[in-house]
């Protein structure tokens, strides 16, 4: 597999530390147990149209997208079809993934969510204006590292929520609760990840101007 060679070369020097800790804690279909650097694989797709990298992403994420959609009430055959569509979008919109603002799981989740709404509610999910680094530059590797770490921390925090609270959050995300049934006090520890994303946005805005 070729590695990304863009000028800041973030992932080349950094291979292995950009990935969220424990993201690959379960041996998946490929049988691997070591940490996978999803960010590096994603950049290889973006910059080199690397099919091997895409195959690895597909093996890991497609079953998760399908499982998520099924848990949200989508029938198996449809969930299969949508998961394939989602992975095609991952390839096509690779340049929009900003690892200083989101983990790959988060980004793929947003694509899956939009696909589900598109299909099930026959409605659009209006998306905010897209902001991205453009072809010449990319985020600072320290920011990328911090963001991926922060996501891993959030994942652990969500896992260790009290059962009742976790069930409520799950019901919201799996589509069982309407916006009227949600409270403004979610009890989710989102302060630090929010500040991280805010910082990354400031840097991106500076770069864009």
């Amino acid at each position: 597999m070729s590695l990304p060679t863009r000028k800041s070369g973030c992932m080349r020097e950094n291979r292995g530390i950009c990935s969220p800790a424990g993201d690959e804690r379960k041996a998946d279909v490929t049988g691997q147990t070591e940490e996978t650097d999803w960010v590096a694989l994603m950049l290889a797709i973006r910059d080199h149209r690397d099919e091997t990298a895409f195959a690895r992403l597909f093996q890991h994420f497609a079953p998760r997208v399908k499982g998520f959609l099924m848990k949200s009430g989508t029938a198996s055959a449809q969930a299969e079809e949508y998961a394939q569509d989602v992975m095609a979008v991952v390839w096509q919109k690779a340049h929009l993934f900003d690892p200083s603002r989101a983990s790959l799981s988060t980004w793929i989740f947003t694509i899956a969510r939009n696909r589900r709404i598109d299909a099930i509610r026959k409605a659009r999910h209006p998306e905010p204006e897209e902001l991205f680094w453009g072809p010449e530059s990319e985020p600072d590797q320290a920011d990328v590292y911090e963001m991926q770490q922060e996501n891993a921390r959030l994942t652990r925090a969500v896992q260790s929520l009290p059962e009742k609270q976790r069930a409520l959050i799950e019901r919201a995300f799996f589509g069982d609760l309407s916006h009227r049934e949600l409270a403004d006090e979610t009890g989710l520890p989102l302060g630090t990840i929010k500040s991280r994303i805010r910082l990354a946005l400031e840097r991106l805005r500076l770069h864009m101007s």
């Binding site: 993201d23 998760r64 997208v65 499982g67 998520f68 848990k71 603002r101 989101a102 983990s103 799981s105 988060t106 980004w107 793929i108 989740f109 947003t110 899956a112 969510r113 996501n151 959030l154 994942t155 969500v158 896992q159 959050i169 799950e170 995300f173 799996f174 989710l188 989102l190 990840i193 929010k194 994303i197």
Partner: peptide, 14 residues
């Protein structure tokens, strides 16, 4: 983005 990250975490766990 923080709420999207919660969605990402749940998708990972599903």
């Amino acid at each position: 983005g923080a709420f999207d990250a919660v969605g990402g975490a749940l998708m990972d766990e599903a």
